[in-house]
Amino acid sequence: MPSHKINPNNWINLYSDYLFNYTISRVNDREMAQDLVSETFLAGLKSMANFKGEASERTWLISILKRKIIDYYRKINSNKGKAEVRMSYNSDSDAEGDWLEERVADPFDKTAEDTLENSELGDAIYDCLGKLPEKQAEVFKMKTILGYDTETICNELDITASNLWVIIHRARAALAGCMEKNWF
């Protein structure tokens, strides 16, 4: 059932932040994540003919991205011996004499469940952001996630400060409603 359509014109606006967020939680390197996202888009463009419409565009792009991330890990591990896990218990000299127990991750600090919940929360946030009008989403992301100050955003997007606050207010109200439904 080809119910989903493919339209690459809007890919960057619609999915780049979502894909980036997905990648950064897995590779932990901004530069690398950006490269992977850009590669994903280009690869998607090349194999557009293979898009059958069984899944949404976003799911389809994520499946490409997953391969890219796996490839990335293969590449950095391809040098012989790098793949094996090496542990040095006392690498930095200033920690000499510390108890080994102190270096074990604190089980109360972060559990697997927390991380899982965090990544799900990230997905939920991006789902809600995706429902906002493009302009609102853009301004809101710059302000909240990237933490740019008001002046920078105003210059970048050529809007006034009061304009920005109105946009932020609408975005926050809509997002709060959306998250209320999907998360709490």
Partner: peptide, 29 residues
């Protein structure tokens, strides 16, 4: 609600692409 929303963003640690690299990506694409 507003405070709750801010807190969600803080704990989720969501990331987004910064404006310049997005523009760059856009032009290559």
């Amino acid at each position: 609600n507003n405070g709750k929303l801010s807190k969600l963003f803080k704990v989720s640690k969501v990331e987004a692409m910064d404006h310049n690299s997005k523009e760059k990506l856009k032009s290559t694409f």
